[in-house]
């Protein structure tokens, strides 16, 4: 079960947001400006059921998220949702995979300690005996150029979306 983020787990100054998660409801998230570098040579892998509940993840996923494996399995994948990400990105993710297509994108993820990390993610439907049983996401290290482009694009998208969230304005 997804819980609010805990101030005790976050080092230094943070901003507090109350975000709304699809199919779950409100969550308090705590955000700092500190980035954690993507680990070289690794893939960060997770799988979900068809509703986006985490069913498997590899050790790199656990390490980068900052959570214990036990609190990740069975929890909404939006546990990593960063308030700087525009909703449009995740809408296109879900539209694509539910249509049976592969989705690629750059994602800024939120850690348990309020820090963030950027990934290049590929999500595909897991087809078993002709039925979609879940989704797999494999992330790899993005280039700084792509991260810069994504920051600009997401800022623009967020401005267009307008935020109904309760949190500091940029």
């Amino acid at each position: 079960m997804l819980r609010d983020m805990q101030p005790l787990a976050v080092l230094g100054d943070f901003r507090e947001y109350h975000i709304n998660l699809y199919g779950f409801g409100p969550r308090k998230v705590l955000v700092t400006d500190e980035e954690v570098a993507y680990p070289d040579g690794k893939l960060i892998v997770s799988r979900t059921d068809t509703r986006g509940i985490i069913t498997h993840c590899n050790q790199s996923f656990v390490d980068m998220s900052g959570y214990q494996r036990e609190s990740l399995i069975g929890t909404e994948h939006s546990i990593l949702r960063h308030p700087d990400m525009p909703s449009a990105a995740f809408k296109s993710l879900w539209d694509d995979v539910e249509a049976g297509k592969i989705w690629h994108g750059y994602v800024k993820n939120l850690r348990r300690d309020g820090k963030f990390y950027w990934v290049y993610a590929t999500v595909i439907p897991n087809v078993r005996n002709g039925r979609v049983e879940g989704y797999t996401s494999v992330r790899r290290k993005p280039s700084r150029t792509k991260i810069r482009e994504s920051i600009a694009l997401y800022k623009q998208l967020k401005a267009q979306e307008g935020s109904s969230w309760d949190g500091p304005e940029d």
Partner: peptide, 16 residues
């Protein structure tokens, strides 16, 4: 079978 399917899914994300 599932281990294999998982590895194939993973390879497919890398090839895409």
């Amino acid at each position: 079978q599932e281990d294999t399917e998982f590895m194939i899914d993973l390879m497919d994300t890398l090839k895409a």
